[in-house]
């Protein structure tokens, strides 16, 4: 924990740009109580959550079709492969053209960029399905709905968490990008404005808020849910990094 702080300290003393830590931290409470920062924060959070949900649905659908195979399986496979390779900047600029400056554009960019990764992870999960449990389900003549609910779905839970974790962080990055290029609201836009106006301390503060939200979601939301969903495994098996 000490290293980044150390780096900041060094940075602030060697250049005139980076403001000393104390000053920035002092501005924090004032900054946080400024009412107009919260709508932007909320907006960005909303966008991330919404796009992630879309990405999860699309990703699951894609993984399912890819796993089934056949003509559509291969077609979707190609699309996913293609979309993995689009630089998010280009996707952002493109969506700007298609959706102009609307909210939809942001959701579009973030979902399109993240869903292929979700699909890949879930596909791995589908492929790793335990044939032996499937067979047990067949022997006991489990109807398809029960089979899906008790055997197929729980198997995918760890993979879903992995996908969520990775793509959540990814989604944040893309959303900032999208907000920077495409719309005038949200944290990304505020951050860019701070940069434009050379308000470095503001930029730093936005960065800190960003960090806090990220760490908070990881430790307060993701890890506990994961632990709870996977408690049948015994302890110590959650993702490490």
């Amino acid at each position: 924990m000490s290293v980044p702080i150390l780096l900041w300290w060094i940075g602030s003393h060697t250049t005139t740009f980076v403001p000393p830590m104390g000053e920035v931290l002092r501005k924090m409470p004032e900054f946080l109580s400024e009412e107009d920062i919260w709508p932007d924060v909320l907006l960005t959070v909303q966008r991330v959550a919404g796009s992630l949900m879309i990405a999860l649905s699309l990703g699951f659908g894609a993984a399912y079709v890819m796993h089934k195979g056949g003509l559509w399986g291969r077609v979707v496979d190609r699309y996913v492969g293609l979309m993995l390779g689009i630089p998010s900047t280009i996707a952002a600029l493109l969506s700007l053209y298609i959706f102009k400056r609307s909210e939809l554009g942001v959701y579009f960019v973030v979902s399109i960029v993240t869903f292929p990764f979700v699909a890949l992870t879930l596909l791995q999960g589908l492929r790793a399905a335990d044939r032996r449990l499937d067979e047990m389900g067949d022997v006991y003549r489990l109807p398809t709905s029960q089979h899906a609910r008790h055997i197929s779905a729980p198997h995918l839970v760890p993979y879903t968490f992995a996908a969520i974790r990775n793509e959540y962080a990814h989604a944040w990055k893309v959303v900032v990008l999208a907000e920077l290029f495409a719309v005038n609201s949200g944290m990304g836009a505020r951050f860019a404005r701070a940069f434009d106006r050379f308000r470095i301390d503001d930029a730093m503060l936005w960065l800190i808020i960003f960090m806090i939200i990220l760490l908070a979601t990881e430790y307060l939301l993701l890890l506990p849910s994961e632990r709870r969903a996977l408690r049948w495994r015994g302890s110590g098996k959650e993702a490490l990094l």
Binding site: P4, G11, V18, A169, V176
Partner: peptide
């Protein structure tokens, strides 16, 4: 570990902007 975790989470833009500033 903390640096790496934060490093993973920081949007690329931020690195670029900070690098330019500094």
């Amino acid at each position: 570990r903390p640096i790496v975790v934060m490093g993973l989470a920081v949007p690329d833009i931020v690195y670029i902007i900070v690098a330019i500033l500094v």
